[in-house]
């Protein structure tokens, strides 16, 4: 068995829409390859503007979408060979998702602990007593700075967005995955709470779980990640050590991205106030039609 946890090998995804005659092909992900090593858990940031194919890439890693060409191998299992519910369960135990909007990922009609107990039962409970599963849930919640007492009997609307996102992370931890795919996990969370969630990812990595952190927020990506992939129009334009790529970007697109970050500093604000009316032409988003 190889040492690769995740092997993304020349993966492309083409969506087509329209009828037989007016068919349009949109290349969402274009020949992307990267690996995550099993022995070195890391936080891998995937950066790009909206529409660059970040989410499609995530969905393929989570096996919610099949690649048009290329191969995805997770922990020795080719995702294309997954057919049965049992296989999917095995995969889901290894890869857990965290989504963008915590208010969308929990059903507002159900109590939060229901999700936690359900996940616990699905993945682990065959071997465990009810009492110990309660302890395991409390443990997972403690890792994210909450406790079962705070969460039980509460509905999603009773918690703030930041707390809810922590519950989502605790739920993902319960399955004891090897990889967490977090798709814009902090873009709906307040700037002041963002950091406590991002710091949490570092704790999770130190538990030995790799994280794919998808975002368009370059500042948090710089702060937290070990390695970075910059994606544009579905293909990787630059990759490498996060600090190096963001400090000294080589590709003009990366430089453009970095320069667009609005820093909470007046020194920088004076230098590049985006106040000219020129240069606002175009949609700002790439045309993905070939």
């Amino acid at each position: 068995m190889s040492d690769l946890l995740l092997d993304v090998c020349h993966v492309s995804k083409i969506f087509s829409r329209g009828g037989l005659l007016s068919r349009q092909r949109i290349t969402a992900v274009d020949d992307v390859s990267f690996q995550i090593d099993k022995r070195r858990p890391e936080i891998l940031a995937v950066i790009g503007e909206s529409g660059s194919g970040k989410t499609t890439l995530c969905r393929m890693i989570l096996n919610l979408e099949l690649p048009t060409t290329g191969r995805l191998v997770f922990d020795g299992v080719d995702l294309a060979t997954i057919r049965t519910a049992a296989d999917r369960m095995m995969l889901r135990q290894g890869v857990q998702p965290i989504f963008q909007n915590p208010f969308d990922s929990f059903n507002p009609m159900k109590r939060l602990e229901r999700y936690l107990f359900l996940t616990q039962r699905r993945f682990l409970a065959a071997t465990q007593q009810p009492a110990s599963s309660k302890a395991a849930i409390d443990d997972a919640l403690h890792q994210v700075g909450l406790s079962l007492k705070e969460v039980s009997h509460r509905y999603p609307h009773e918690l703030s967005g930041g707390q809810l996102q922590r519950v989502a992370i605790a739920r993902a931890l319960l399955a004891r995955p090897k990889l967490i795919v977090a798709d814009e996990p902090v873009s709906m969370v307040d700037a002041s709470l963002r950091l406590s969630i991002v710091n949490l990812f570092r704790t999770v990595r130190d538990l030995g779980i790799s994280i794919i952190y998808v975002t368009h927020d370059l500042a948090t990506a710089y702060y937290i990640s070990d390695r970075i992939l910059v994606i544009r129009n579905g293909s990787i334009v630059e990759s490498g050590d996060a600090k190096a790529v963001l400090k000294y970007p080589q590709h003009p697109y990366c430089r453009q991205l970095r320069d667009a970050v609005l820093l909470p500093d007046l020194a920088n604000a004076a230098a590049d106030v985006p106040i000219s009316m020129t240069g606002v032409k175009g949609t700002g988003e790439p045309d993905r039609r070939p």
Binding site: S160, Q163, A191, S192, L193, R194, L195, S196, I197, V198, N199, L218, A219, T220, Y222, Y223, I224, K243, L246, K247, R258, V261, L263, P264, D265
Partner: peptide
């Protein structure tokens, strides 16, 4: 002070922490 200082910046490696407690 917290709002301004807590935000991470590119090129600055100092560890930062979120505000404790809940709103």
């Amino acid at each position: 002070k917290h709002l301004i200082s807590s935000l991470p910046r590119i090129g600055d490696d100092a560890p930062r922490c979120g505000l404790g407690g809940a709103p």
